Amino acid sequence: MPLFPPTDASPSTRTEELRSFLFLAVVMAPVLAVVSVAGYGFAVWVYQMFAGPPGG
Rank of each mutant, 00 (worst) to 15 (best):
V34M: 06
P11F: 11
A25D: 06
V27A: 12
L3D: 04
S36D: 14
E16H: 08
V31T: 07
V37A: 13
S20D: 11
R14W: 03
V35H: 03
Y40R: 03
M28C: 14
F50I: 15
T7R: 10
D8W: 06
G41Q: 13
T13E: 05
A51N: 03
L24P: 00
V44N: 07
P54F: 03
G55Y: 02
A33P: 00
R19P: 00
V27K: 07
V26W: 11
A43W: 14
A29M: 02
V44I: 15
E17P: 01
V31S: 05
A38G: 14
G39M: 11
S12Q: 10
A9D: 08
E17W: 03
S10I: 13
P11K: 11
A43N: 11
R14G: 00
F21P: 00
S12M: 12
F21E: 13
S12F: 01
F21R: 12
P54G: 07
W45D: 03
P30K: 02
L22H: 05
F4R: 06
S10F: 11
T7Q: 09
P53C: 01
F50K: 10
W45G: 01
L3R: 14
A9S: 11
T13M: 11
V27M: 13
S20C: 08
E16Y: 06
V46G: 00
T13S: 15
Y40K: 03
P5E: 02
V34Q: 03
Q48W: 08
V27F: 15
S36W: 09
S36T: 15
G55L: 06
A51W: 02
L18V: 12
R14H: 00
F4T: 06
M49W: 09
Q48A: 03
P5K: 03
P2I: 06
A9T: 09
A9N: 09
Y40H: 01
S12H: 04
V35G: 04
V35D: 04
V26G: 03
S20V: 06
T7D: 04
D8R: 11
E16T: 14
